[in-house]
Nucleic acid binder design. Sequence first.
DNA 1: GGGGGCTATGGGGGG
DNA 2: CATAGCCCCC
Length: 754
Amino acid sequence: MNKVSFSYLDELNEVQRNAVTTIDGPVMVIAGPGSGKTRVLTYRIAHLINSGVHPGQILALTFTNKAAREMKERIERVIGSSANKIWAGTFHSLFARILRVEAHRIGYPNDFTIYDTDDTKSVISEIVKTMNLDKKVYAPGVVRSRISSAKSNLITPKAYAVNEELLAYDRMNMRPHIHVLYDKYVKKCEKAGAMDFDDLLLQMFKLLYQNPDNVRSKYQNQFKYILVDEFQDTNYLQYEIMKLLIEYPDSPRNICIVGDDAQSIYSFRGASIENILMFETDFPEVQVFKLEQNYRSTNFIVNAANEVITYNSNQIKKKIWTQKEDGKKIKLIKAATDNEEGKRVSDSIIEQKNRFNLANKDIAILYRTNAQSRVFEENLRRFNIPYRVYGGLSFYQRKEIKDFLAYIRMVINDKDDEAFKRIINFPKRGIGNTSVEEIAKIAEDNGMSMWEVINSIELNSRAKKSIGEFVSIIRESKAKIDKLDAYEAAKFILNKSGIMTMLKADGSIESRSRMENLTSLLDGIQEFVQDDTLEINEEFSNDKSLSKFIQNISLMTDQDENNADADTVTLMSVHSAKGLEYRSIFVVGLEENLFPSYMSLADPSQIEEERRLFYVAITRAEEHLTLSYANSRYQYGDMRFNDPSRFLEEIKDENIDGLIGITRESKGFGEPKILGNFKPLKPKTASLNINPDDFSASPISKIIPGARVLHLKFGEGQVLSVDDRQIATILFSDAVDSPEKRIVLKFAKLQVLE
DNA sequence: GGGGGCTATGGGGGG
DNA sequence: CATAGCCCCC
């Protein structure tokens, strides 16, 4: 029955095997890209379980939802359904889960609200306004990041107020009052029963550190084995939480950290490479395993990665290597404009699919900023290449979804002033800014929530009647949530809110899509109600209330994962590509000011982080790596000109193939004139399967009317005519859209068939 | 006091 | 290009 099999150990190389089987005491795995890190992690967990560890005693922490999901899936494949007993997930989601049970011990309600970045910024703006500070100087984003990094370094508002270094920095930037804002912000969140993303860590720390009712030992006993993925991305606070969980008298200190300093790309949110050094000091008995053999990429790609990273001065010495063949050289696409870049990349994707028999899902386009996706989306659509965009504005960040969720938040936690402000006058019911500010002021002065104010204080605002309407919507909804299941309750609230009525009345295409989104959120809630799979810990699993549903929604940043197996090209930021691999990778927008980002140019350490980011990007590729840049692009509404990225120069020429396509010396405006044929292809174009080795382009002089030719993209065709500009009209009978194509001979790859 | 339209400004990455 | 803030009219 429970036959224990250790056969998976045969699939590992020696270093990997040692990293998997050394289960006692602290272990550090330094894992280069493609070195089988995830395999080591999953097999290590499988090995723990095979060695008699109960799955519920394992805590496996990751940074992104995507990494967590992938880890869980892979563990399940190895050990079966008991995998769902493992505490595997992101720091934020697992700590939120614990705090949902324990928060009352540290003065928070267990059904605390989670503030996302927008909520946080809005709270800060409010404080800046009431303090009569300049909102340009105290931009909410800037203030938020100061507060966030204070929290990440365990600096309380009190400590901040006397920390000369921080104060001096703020004075230098003409923001001497940040410590006051920090203090007020924390108090406001506490009063609203809300935690921001940093609080999920900070309050977890507080819980373990202050140790009410000896709660710490409960979790120390529960988590006998701790694993941390992407350790180079942890911040000080996360490190301290780990230590509280692992360090106690006679602790076996079973902690395994996995990471790669060369892939540290999150210092902007407080991650610190120093944690790796600190770990070696705090756990001197640590056993270190270095995984340097790369199983992912061919040699040209590995070489390029090694070359690029040598330009960084701060790094743990290691060199990745591969036994694979040289493979294809790196391709470079040089475009005149961002739009041409989009076209050439799409063009190149079609060519690769045909020449190398790649599926769409083997291909990913990686960019530095999410805003770059638009041009690629447009062009991929034009070529009828199915694609999927990760990141950017997720489903839960859409306006209509946030509005509806704000209603639900209000119904569940009426102290949630951020939700209150969002919906008090949405849909429009005649309660303007003046009234809202009056309510906010009274709330502030009396230490009440805004909801309490409108329920207890007679306002002289003439919006009184409308406020009454709002109160009854929320009250009636409140009366329902305990009687109905999450789905019925949500449907009731949505109806009451009037959002749907408003959208229906509007009738625009946009409104219709908003209504669809709301309906699909309701579907999601229905699914949640009917879902019968068990969660990690049974004490959490029977709650089907609406409150339970929305509790972790702020943490759900990924887009719907329903069709993860669909055959689509993937578009995403380099950050979210970490940990993934594709047969073919396009890294686009390689220009100074963009990649590396203009934000990083002044600071050498930030340039190094950009370089690590580039390192991450190129090491995602298994066989094909294409780098592209544009001489000019539209940014912030007008045309900008950027130089090619310094990172391109850091790759030795011997690893790079010649240019693809036109080299335009002129940095002119507008569309390049000649770009081949960009009419849309029908989807599911039959792959032509032309072996590139059998293909050799013929000289232009051979392309004459009547000749039979082979084209890499369009297959076999017959030349009808060639005009004096050397443009041939060719009949491709297999082409799905229009069989007749005009081909510019100067750029076309045509082979004359005898 | 509230709502709609126009102008000015800022624009990174993720939980 | 998107959003916030401002002005002006209802």
